[in-house]
């Protein structure tokens, strides 16, 4: 119940104070440059990484990116820059 209240408070703040959602709600901010790059902020760690698939942990659920010839250009505690040919981006909610 308490968590629900917190969620509601945040929603309220967001609506009233006009702050960006990713800051308040801990959502990932995803930037894509065509199909070449994808830049994800606010991730919670690497789950799988292969040539054709990248699976990232988020606060709520997972992010699955599919494509080909993937390589991680850089990875920091909360940011990741992926290069390759990106075809699909899925949000997986449990």
């Amino acid at each position: 119940m308490a968590q629900k209240w917190g969620q509601k408070l945040r929603q309220l703040m967001m609506n009233s104070m006009d702050l960006p959602q990713d800051v308040i709600m801990d959502l990932p901010r995803i930037t894509m440059i065509g199909q070449l790059h994808i830049y994800i902020e606010n991730h919670r760690g690497l789950l799988t990484f292969t040539d054709t698939e990248l699976r990232l942990m988020l606060k709520n659920g997972q992010l699955l990116i599919k494509g080909s010839s993937f390589s991680i250009k850089a990875i920091l505690p909360e940011e990741i820059l992926l290069e390759g040919k990106i075809e699909h981006v899925f949000f997986i909610n449990e």
Binding site: G45, L46, L47, T48, F49, T50, D51, F70, S71, I72, K73, A74, I75, L76, P77
Partner: peptide
């Protein structure tokens, strides 16, 4: 290997150019 990467990232070790080499092996 993913867990290793996560662990390193948490300890502020900057890594880049991560690539899958063969099955079950990565280069960085």
């Amino acid at each position: 290997t993913e867990r290793v990467i996560n662990k390193m990232v948490k300890q502020n070790i900057y890594i880049w150019d991560v690539k899958k080499a063969e099955t079950d092996s990565i280069l960085f």
